[in-house]
Design a protein around this nucleic acid. Structure first.
Length: 585
RNA sequence: GCGCCCAUAGCUCAGCCGGAUAGAGCGUCGGUUUCCUAAACCGAAGGUCGCAGGUUCGAGUCCUGCUGGGCGUGCCA
């Protein structure tokens, strides 16, 4: 279904078509939400830009557009303001009808109407040699949210965990496995590491101090890469164990991922190199096979290569990523591939995308995106670290979140029983971390501030869940099962707070579209926070309306329905952020 | 050196394709509870949008230069 915004855009475009008949000019309504309600709900800014095309002043053009505009079923009569803004205010009748349609739609008006694409989203993707740490937080949270949004809209999403399960460091690790847990060779499933981080450190220490171990490690890499069965067994055991650790974290975060590591693309690497050489895109330089993408230079001003085969004959991540990209296009038929990594890898992906286009591996119908996010900083403005200078384990970070929320609940004026505190903290803890992350724009760095993200005040995860729980409480108190309310309930929008709330609800599809099209989850957080605030005012003793004891019954029903719709939108919106809600808190 | 990114209120951050007096939270100050969850709500103070030019009817947003930060920059990922 078309959102209010889309409807208005269509109508204005049609009017522009008439006004601009025969003229070669864009039919862009330039519709914006107004910043001030006195200008209505939307403003069309197109008239000002057409002054030169039509040779009259913008107010006159605005008038012509209005004359050609058929919109009385959606808006009150449009007004011209200032230099030529066309101000549009949704009519109360339209708002009510549109809301009923939204309520009856299981996508709440945000479906893609069958325009389904196959999207591969490459996110999280930790290195299996080590434990997941804070550096993986943003990719995992943002990636999951983007997947959820695209799935909700109706796309076919393939969530890819492109884990680092290959490379030279595995030689050292596998050699260490062989020495410390030799039974793993006979019974791979018995292989366990409680602390992957420590395991890596121990192996590394031995690698540094023991020449014999070092030599053996190097031989192990060779054995692994040549497919030697025992080494493959150990490798599999190690990867399985590491992935178990990862999925414990994913489970706690409610994130689903399909593991498909770098090793999966090994068979295709020589082909990638050979084909780029055949196409004369790759050439030998200093013993390595390189692709030089125009426009990239290194320190001394010489061309900067993407190295696809090292001088020792080995491959690196440029090669693997190219192979994976081809696989996703050729074998998995992706229409759109999205990579979610830190911003530091921007030029790597940029070069890689260009190489794929140059090689005609990816045609123009296929969209490639790299979403580069900013770093997580500590309170001091530097990269977040533990006191010892190491990176913070994700498992510890989530524990801390839950503990902090528990402490707040225990100190609260409200009296919770201990079981309830655990239940609430286990939902609110991760939610606070996610909300803090997603409410920042992706590309900027952000400061990780426990006190702020865990707080129940301000724009935080806890506040949002509380806002939801409050609405659920209204249903309980009123003795109404929201889910069984009739979608046909007539909505009576009389009080200003009812109208404001209703209009805010209508913006939900637009918020989703912003996330889905621009891949910006913070458009959803700011929308939801605004909606919660609007709801609070609607429900406020002093400034809002009565709900549970409203008279007459038709007003009560209408307001309960508004509560219900707000509840649905909040629940759905938060779910797209990967945040669970609580009926009570 | 080259490339990319950033600079908005005391602090943390938004700002949709350039659009009307630049928004929010926290903090500060003030107000609201015989009444549906006060973990709430309402209000006030607080800004030369880093600096200087330019394009435009109109610039926080686009272009150029400068200052101050960050990241990347040949065999790690």
């Amino acid at each position: 279904m078309a959102s209010a915004r889309q409807l208005i855009e269509q109508r204005i475009t049609a009017a522009l078509d008439q006004v601009l008949e025969g003229q070669d000019a864009k039919r862009d309504p330039m519709l914006k939400q107004t910043q001030d309600p006195k200008f209505g709900d939307f403003q069309a800014n197109c008239a000002m830009g057409l002054e030169k095309v039509l040779g009259t002043n913008p107010r006159e053009i605005a008038q012509r557009i209005i004359d050609a505009l058929e919109i009385d079923d959606v808006c009150d009569p449009p007004e011209i303001a200032g230099p030529g803004f066309i101000n549009l205010r949704l009519s109360a009748a339209f708002v009510g009808k549109q809301l009923q349609k939204m309520l009856a739609d299981d996508k709440l008006g945000a479906g893609n109407d069958g325009d389904t694409k196959r999207v591969v989203v490459d996110f999280s993707s930790p290195n299996l040699a080590k434990e997941m740490h804070v550096g993986h937080l943003r990719s995992t949270i943002i990636g999951d949210s983007i997947c959820r949004t695209l799935e909700f809209v109706g796309h076919e999403v393939m969530r890819r965990n492109h884990v680092g399960d290959w490379g030279t460091q595995f030689g050292m690790l596998l050699e260490y496995v062989k020495r410390t847990q030799p039974q793993a060779l006979d019974d791979p499933s018995s292989f366990r590491v409680n602390d992957l981080e420590q395991f890596y450190k121990d192996a590394h220490a031995l690698f540094q101090s023991d020449e014999e171990f070092k030599t053996a490690s190097r031989q192990s890499v060779v054995a692994l890469q040549s497919g030697e069965p025992e080494m493959r067994t150990l490798w599999k055991a190690f990867c399985d164990e590491s992935l178990r650790h990862c999925h414990e974290i994913y489970d706690r975060l409610g994130v689903k991922l399909v593991d498909m590591g770098e090793s999966a693309y090994q068979p295709f690497l020589p082909g990638v190199v050979a084909e780029l050489q055949e196409k004369a895109l790759a050439e030998e330089s200093d013993g390595a096979i390189c692709v030089f993408v125009p426009g990239y230079t290194n320190r001394d001003g010489s061309p900067l290569p993407s190295i696809i085969q090292k001088s020792d004959g080995g491959f690196n991540y440029d090669t693997t990523d190219l192979a994976a990209l081809r696989y996703r296009v050729d074998e998995e038929n992706a229409n759109h591939i999205i990579y979610i990594t830190d911003r530091g890898q921007a030029s790597h992906f940029d070069m890689m995308f260009k190489i794929c286009r140059m090689a005609n591996w990816v045609n123009d119908d296929i969209e490639l995106n790299h979403i580069g996010f900013g770093v997580v900083l500590g309170k001091d403005g530097k990269r977040i670290r533990t006191k010892e200078g190491g990176s913070i384990k994700l498992a510890d970070l989530l524990d801390t979140a839950v503990t902090k929320v528990k402490e707040l609940l225990e100190d609260s004026a409200r009296d919770f029983d201990p079981d309830k505190i655990d239940e609430i903290a286990n939902v609110v803890g991760p939610a606070s971390v996610k909300y803090a992350d997603l409410s920042h724009s992706i590309e900027s760095d952000y400061k990780f501030d426990w006190d702020k993200m865990v707080s129940f005040e301000g724009e935080t995860g806890p506040y949002m869940i509380y806002a939801f729980a409050r609405i659920a409480g209204i249903g309980r108190k009123a003795g109404v099962d929201f889910d069984s309310l009739s979608p046909e309930t007539e909505l009576i929008l009389g009080h200003p707070t009812e109208i404001t709330l209703a209009k805010s609800l209508l913006q939900f599809p637009d918020a989703i579209a912003q996330v889905a099209n621009q891949l910006k989850p913070n458009a959803m957080t700011s929308y939801l926070y605004g909606l919660s605030r609007t709801f609070s005012t609607f429900y406020d003793k002093e400034h809002g309306v009565r709900v549970i004891d409203a008279e007459p019954e038709s007003a009560r029903q209408s307001r309960l329905q508004l509560c219900n719709l707000t509840r649905k939108v909040l629940r759905t919106g938060l779910s797209l952020l990967g945040i669970d809600v609580l009926e009570e808190m």
